[in-house]
Structure formats: C-alpha cells, structure tokens
Nucleic acid binder design. Structure first.
Lengths: 339, 339
DNA sequence: TTGTAAGCGTTATCAA
DNA sequence: TTGATAACGCTTACAA
C-alpha cells in the first residue's frame, strides 16, 4: 500500500462539490475557471498538501521526465563529477535522474539496463562497464527508439551520440611531458586494454615515444585488469627490480600511486629516479607525497554535454543525432615530475 | 514521446484477434487460458520483445516497488557501502532503488525529498545532510504514512525506525586506544558538532579522558565545519605550534590525514611524537604513509538493515516499527599508533 | 475458455 | 464557467 494519507483531485472535488476537471484546471491556473473556484481549490490543495501523483502523470503524458544513468562506479571522483554535471543540467530542465551503479559487472549492467526499458525513463545515459563485450541490451534500448547517449566508455556498434575525452591526445601529452622532463626509458601501466579509452591512452603513449625517437620496450608495458592501487604496485615490480625505467605514465592515479609505493619501497626516489604522470586528477594526488602530476578529466562538462544531447533527443525524437563530442584533457603538473 | 517502438498487450491482442484480458492472463500464466492461446501470446510477446509498462503497472497496483535513498554524498566510501547494502537487499526482494545525492545541501535535500512524496517510491531511506536543522520535509513524508527509515545521520524528532552506529562507543574506544598507547595529551578534531554522530564521538572521547584521569584542554578541541582534508590540516595548526599534544583522535580519516600532513610539515613524527586515530576506515588510510589507525564503519550492514526495516514496513504498513538498531565499530590498528 | 468493463490519478476534448 | 467522458497500459471481477 503506497500512500494512505495521499489526497487526489477527486478528494478535493468531492469536498468542494465540483468536478475533477475543474479542480485540475484550477490547479493548472487555467484562466477559464472562476477566480473564486480557483482560490477555493488551491486553498484546499494547500491544506491537504496535495501533490499530483507522479505515476498517473507519467502514464497520461507518456513521459516520465526522468532520465536513467548507467554507470560502472559511484566511489570514483570522475564519475561523481559526471553525475553532478548530468544532475545539474537535468534538474534545470525539469528532469529527474535515476542512477544505476553496475559495479563494473556485465550481468548487473544488463539487468539494470533492461529494468529501464519498460517506460521508467525517457532516455538513458550510459558508460559501459569494464567487463562488457556484448552490447545487445543497449541495442534493444536503441531499437525501441529510446534516446540513448554514451559517455566516456562508449559502444561503437550503436549509432547514438557519444561524449568522450580525447584519451589519445591526453596519453600523448602525458608521455610528452615525461620526455620533456628528460625521461628516456618511459614505462606504461594502464587499465584493461579491451576498453577503448585505454587503447587510446596507450596509443598516445606510443606516438609520443615514437616522435621522441625512443624505443618501445615490451617489458615496460603492462595492461592491468582493474586499474586500482594493488594493480599499480604489482605492475612495476619487475621494472623496479631491473632498475630499468626513469619515467612512468600510468593510466589512472591509483595505478600511479600503487606504482610509486612499490618504487619508494625499493629505494627509488620520485621524481628524481623515476618521474610519474597519472590520469584523472583525483584528490588523493594532491594529498599524496609526492603530489602527483596528472591529466585532468572534465567530468562535469562531460555530464552536462551528455545530458544536453539526451534531452535534445527526448524533446526532438525525429532529429536523430549521432555525433561524437570530444572533450580535452589538460596536464596538471605537481611534484612527481618536478626535477 | 516515450517509446515509439514499444509493444503493448493491446497490440498483441489485436494481432491475435483476441482480447487484452486474455493476453494479460496468458502472460501471467493463468491456468484458465487455453494452452494454444497462451503459447501464441507468449511467442508474439517474445517476438516483439514485449515488456509490461512500468508506469501502468505502478498506477494499477498503487505501488512502484521502488525505494528512494536520500544521501548526502556519493564519493564517500562509507555511503557507497551503505548503498551497496541497500541495493543488494532491495534487489533480492524485488525492489528497485532511486538514489538522490544532496551534496550536503539542505535545499537540495528538501527538493529531493519532496520530489519523492508523490508516489514515485514506496518508501524512503534517508541520511540527513550536515546542513539540515529543519525536518519538515521528512515530517511531511511521515505524515502521509509513507514508510521512512533513517540511517547514520538521523532525525530524532520523527518517530520512525533508525539504524545507527554506536558513535559514542567508537569515540570512546578510539581515545582509549590512544591512552593505552601512552598518550596523555590527547586532542580531538571532529566534524560539525550539530550532528549527533559527532556529538557522540566527542562524548566518547571525553568519557575516555575522564576515565583515564586526563584533563580536558579546550585548546585541543576543534569542531570543524566539513570534516575534510583542509579542515584537518587547519585544525591542528595552533596545537602543533605549541608542541602541546602527543595524541589525536580525528572524527574522520580525512581530518586525520590533513592533520598529519600539518604535523609532518612541522617536523613532528607520526606516531612517535603524536599518535593518530581516524574514523571510517577509508582505503586511503592503507595507502597513506604512515598507514592510519582508524575505526571501522559497517556501512554494508547498515544499508542492509535499513533496507530490511523499510521493506518490512512497506509490506506490513499496519505494524509500525520505531526501534533504533545500533551497529558497532571496531578498532583497526595501523602504523599511526604503533609505538 | 474468453470477453467486457471498471478502475488506478491525471488531463484534454467536447458539450452544455 | 463547468461537467462528463475518454484515454494512457494494465489487471481483475463479472459475464458469457
């Protein structure tokens, strides 16, 4: 039983001895209603704290004014900024938001996505999880002409608008910064290479090495499964033992910090012996010692843009958008590359 | 426009030349339906990927099978675990979840709460924000007999079930551990003292000092506005300058780490000169150097219990629950108190 | 075994 | 200026 105490327009109509349509019109400030009637209705509505039933409204209007978000993680500063950007844009355009966190699980992603196919939301913003390789659930969404926009980790197989970071450029900039810092033996440690974002960051790294005339050394390249702290500290063990590198580009800040911990333990000094650049500009990077040079990720802007594209599509279903919007990253210099 | 491509039972009925009620019954596996009919319906439903309209179902059943969560922050390891606990319990009981993050803003909390009063959710789980002092929005919720359960930061004025941590006990344990470590001049740095949780942690601190026969020194006590890193580093400046303390109980891990940074900068060694205990067991506490002794916060359990109480109330609206469930914290010893 | 019709709460169309 | 009615998609008495 949902709401015992809830008042409907029927109740108000009954008490006032008028019809529900008049009540409805009065509440909508329809100029046709007699001022006295309108006032009486509004007073009673206020007295009873009347609120229009959301479900009935949705059914009537065939729209929920709600957008869904499928996102792999919540405790993640970048995603959190994306969510804020989405929320701010959505709220100021009269939309609500439902967030589903998939915890990077494909199964959860499928369940959550399908749970939103049934008219619960007017459209969907999605960032695919690390473990996703099959996109049928998103295709089903798109096939029903439900507006869908991807952000960050996108699905290329589906023809919908996308908002991404130029990860290639960012990877290139990060590595180039290490080159400029004087590094000549630069390692790469990144997240799951099945993700396009990681392929791009890695691609930028290779391009920068290439341009600088530096050789690519396979033993200095690690693609980790998660991109977290433990992966980071594990990934550089061999390189550290071999004392072979003098620079490191890490695909996430947590990888960077994990790696730094291992290097510090082995007696290496950061940035003197090894300069390190992370990725994402997490706040821990300002707190950690040494503070971490990193690439910014404009999450708020990404969220705003994605929400804008989605709401555009919802409000204008005929004009199909399929563009990809690209945002850019900036280098944030801190101690870990200050020589 | 919500879903152009969406199929309704009407469409199926039309195509099969039968009535909607038969379709509805067939899909519900009603044994009255002739097997052949049932099969035909199911096949067509499958072919068209039919999904029952969520909104229509909600309106019909007067329940949404959705519970709302009002939570101050998302990027917060404790809250994130709470959410997981809630989600797991809710999902396995056939409920969905809507999360509203208030970003510790009272205004946002009011808006978000009121947006859920209108039949969008069958019940609400709430943790009040730091800036909230007026509880009318929650009262309105409760007055409509909408099930409501508070967790962590609760509202005493409202007669609904609550799930809390024994913050008093935890503050006591943390401080006692410092006493046992040999500290005699123990400072307290905590979050906003208008919150009950902080009053309790502070209360536990005072009790432990008292029992140990240690004096309370007003200049060693700071109630911060936010409880974040910057507050932490600011809060201990005077004490550090005076070289007056040898122990610190911080009400959050971020406060602890901010304080440690200031102390380290001033040349103090942790834990040798000052032993530090934090609160919440955030993962940064394992990464930071020195690793941080802290009090655990069983967020997952809290979320599960809160969801359980809420769903109990939803399924059984007559039996009013008003109990408070108390969970307990445990000391996690790490380097910052290892002498 | 199936169909008709009412109802969930709301708004819009038509009549009065 | 107001009221009766249909409709959104679904389920369920009640009838047939």
């Amino acid at each position: 039983m949902m709401k015992k105490g809830s008042v409907t327009i029927k109740d108000i109509a009954l008490e006032l001895g008028i019809s529900v349509s008049t009540v409805s019109r009065a509440l909508a400030d329809n100029p046709l209603v007699k001022p006295a009637t309108r006032q009486a209705v509004k007073e009673l509505a206020k007295k009873y704290n009347y609120r229009p039933n959301f479900t009935a409204l949705s059914l009537r209007n065939n729209r929920t004014r709600t957008i869904g978000i499928i996102i792999p993680q919540l405790v993640h500063e970048f995603f959190s900024m994306v969510i804020r950007g989405i929320e701010d844009f959505a709220y100021s355009n009269g939309y609500n938001v439902i967030i589903s966190s998939t915890h990077e699980s494909y199964e959860r992603e499928v369940i959550d996505t399908k749970a939103l196919i049934n008219g619960r939301v007017d459209g969907l913003l999605a960032c695919v999880s690390k473990s996703t390789t099959n996109y049928d659930h998103f295709k089903e969404f798109a096939e029903r002409n439900l507006p869908l926009v991807f952000f960050d980790c996108i699905c290329d197989e589906i023809d919908s608008p996308k908002v991404v970071l130029d990860d290639f450029e960012a990877g290139y900039q990060a590595t180039q910064h290490l080159v400029e810092t004087g590094c000549t033996q630069i390692a790469y440690v990144g997240g799951p290479i099945n993700l396009q974002i990681n392929q791009d960051r890695f691609g930028g790294y290779k391009k920068a090495l290439n341009e600088a005339g530096l050789a690519l050394n396979e033993s200095w390249i690690k693609h980790c499964e998660t991109g977290d702290y433990d992966d980071g500290s594990e990934s550089v063990r061999d390189m550290v033992a071999a004392r072979s590198i003098d620079g490191l580009f890490a695909g996430t800040d947590m990888l960077a910090i994990g790696a730094i911990k291992t290097m510090k333990k082995a007696g290496l000094q950061i940035p003197k012996d090894v300069a390190v650049v992370g990725f994402s500009n997490w706040s821990i990077g300002t707190i950690y010692e040494p503070s971490l040079t990193t690439m910014s990720q404009p999450g708020y802007e990404m969220g705003q843009k994605a929400a804008e594209l989605l709401i555009q599509q919802i409000d204008n279903p005929d004009k199909k958008l399929t563009d990809t919007f690209t945002l850019h990253s900036e280098l944030i210099q801190r101690e870990s590359t200050q020589r």
